[in-house]
Design a protein around this nucleic acid. Structure first.
Length: 483
RNA sequence: GCCGGUAUCGUCUAGGGGUCAGGACGGGUGGUUCUCAGCCAUCAAACCGGGGUUCGAAUCCCCGUACCGGUACCA
């Protein structure tokens, strides 16, 4: 049977890279096995959830190319896909559990529970709910009801051991004695996470639950709930967490954590997906650069590592550079264009010209945003000389004469292409009795203001004769004022 | 504290009773060259510790340690 998996983010924040990876693993699994990828919004925490966050999460997933078959916007056979619209189902399920004897009403006040925990803590003990309300007499219950006491519903955890098979960790077992009678329905009649996930996974026929490692200790509760509801228990796969460089859970302190932020910083979605896929998963061989199609073909739950993984920005940068290098040139130009516009580096002389510029700059860029700085000298009229460039390359005695010689020679070069321009520059250097490198470096400063650039002859040809000469002239003026 | 998980180069990982313990990022060195980047070559770099089992353990078992997660009327 085709698997049904789901990604169930809670819209209490943006799409975190950890969440994105969980979504990716689910998506890859669904696509690999021709199953269904369901997107469900877990917004039972009304206080902390917001519609904007939902929008942001959907946008992040779309940017990564993770499309869902059923979800809050697309609908599907098990709609609605937002938990806030499914509250009646949770209440019904909770009532059923009470009726079946799997759950019971609890009138304990949060204050009392809190106090118990604190005193236990002081003794150094763990405190689990003492089942006070399980033993309530009928009279007492009537009394509480008459007084209108608020009541929650707790699940009656059996004493037996609960076991489940985890696709990445193998068999995991918990002793019922270590699991307290957890609340499934709050006194305000909103479900807790445990109830809502299970009810939804059950109703939505989810076959595989692929989620973060941090849910392992919740899983026995969920297994118990599935069983109490008489539903089949899905296959679980708990994927390790993503850590920062200091091995702490990845957070704002470590830099960007939201996928939107990575998008803004100039990472390509393909690179992001490839990188995330390799964080905690391996195809089993040495392949690193894989297209989404390949990822789908090779993905398996067995390939997921058991241990947490550190998010290595250096490797992401490398990978992004690889994707930039392989992107079809027109796509790359299109991606860079808005950044240049935004930076006021617009318009270029022509589309072909811009394409050539991007081609020259491409191997030097790790992120799309790098193009802005890289391209700046070519898209501005005035060249500003960097101090280091002046110091290193403009101090040659008699440089003005050499530059003047080059300038007049360049006026006559025909055609103005790389081989001819190169031959010309080298000839002038020889005529002037200086090393070609000296003239090349000075010319580079003239046309870019910098010490580094793509190959000089390519740059000169890109700029064209007129602009090259204008910039050499600007250099001459600069040299004149400096003496 | 208790419960659960994890442990191979700095990082992501492959492998798995006998291997030169492989790859990638990052780092070093060299080559290409007008610079930078890229590309190519090359080097350094790891099986958490202790006990078993075994002819042989990094691999299997036990213990310990470290790290991570959970321990809510959050998700």
């Amino acid at each position: 049977m085709a698997p049904r998996v789901r990604f169930a983010p809670s819209p209490t924040g943006y799409l975190h890279v950890g969440g994105a990876r969980t979504a990716l693993f689910n998506w890859l699994y669904a696509r690999r096995h021709h199953g269904t990828f369901v997107l469900r919004i877990e917004d039972t925490d009304v206080e902390r959830s917001s519609a904007d966050m939902v929008t942001g999460i959907l946008e992040g997933l779309r940017w990564l190319g993770l499309d869902w078959d059923e979800g809050p916007d697309t609908g599907g056979p098990y709609a609605p896909y937002s938990q806030s619209e499914r509250l009646d189902r949770y209440r019904a399920a909770a009532a059923r559990l009470v009726a079946d004897g799997h759950a019971y009403y609890c009138y304990c006040t949060p204050e009392r529970l809190q106090a118990e925990r604190e005193t236990a803590e002081q003794r150094g003990d763990a405190w689990r709910y003492d089942r006070a309300c399980l033993a309530l007499s009928a009279d007492r219950i009537a009394e509480l009801e008459a007084a209108g006491a608020p009541k929650a519903i707790r699940f009656k955890v059996p004493a037996a051991r609960t076991q489940f098979a985890d696709a990445v960790h193998g068999p995991i077992e918990f002793d019922g004695a270590n699991i307290e009678d957890f609340v499934i329905l709050r006194s305000d009649s909103h479900p807790t996470y445990h109830l809502s996930v299970v009810v939804d996974d059950m109703e939505m026929q989810i076959s595989h639950v692929i989620r973060g490692d941090d849910h392992i200790s919740n899983t026995p509760k969920h297994v118990l709930l599935f069983q109490a509801c008489g539903a089949p228990v899905p296959q679980f796969a708990h994927v390790p967490l993503i850590l920062g460089a200091d091995k702490k859970r990845l957070s704002k302190r470590h830099g960007a954590t939201s996928v939107t932020e990575y998008q803004r910083q100039g990472y390509l979605p393909g690179a992001m997906v490839n990188f995330l896929a390799l964080l905690g998963w391996s195809p089993g061989d040495d392949r690193e650069l894989m297209s989404t199609t390949e990822l789908i073909e090779r993905f398996s739950l067995e390939g997921i590592s058991g241990g947490n993984a550190v998010f290595d920005t250096d490797k992401l940068d490398w990978m992004n550079g690889q994707y930039i290098a392989r992107l079809p040139i027109d796509d790359l130009v299109q991606a860079v264009e808005p950044l240049l516009v935004e930076a006021g580096l617009w318009p270029p002389p022509s589309v072909e010209w811009l394409r050539r510029l991007v081609e020259l700059l491409r191997p030097r860029a790790k992120r799309l945003t790098d193009f802005v700085d890289l391209a700046a000298p070519y898209l501005r009229d005035r060249i500003e000389y960097e101090a280091e460039a002046v110091e290193k390359h403009l101090g040659t005695p008699g440089l003005a004469d050499h530059v003047a010689a080059l300038m007049s020679s360049l006026r006559a070069v025909d055609p103005f292409d790389e081989p001819h321009v190169e031959a010309d520059v080298r000839r002038i250097a020889a005529d002037q009795g200086i090393k070609a490198g000296t003239l090349i470096h000075a010319t580079r400063v003239a046309v870019t203001g910098r010490t580094t650039s793509p190959g000089l002859f390519e740059v000169l040809v890109l700029l064209g004769r007129e602009r090259t000469i204008a910039r050499l002239e600007q250099l001459l003026n600069f040299l004149a004022t400096r003496v």
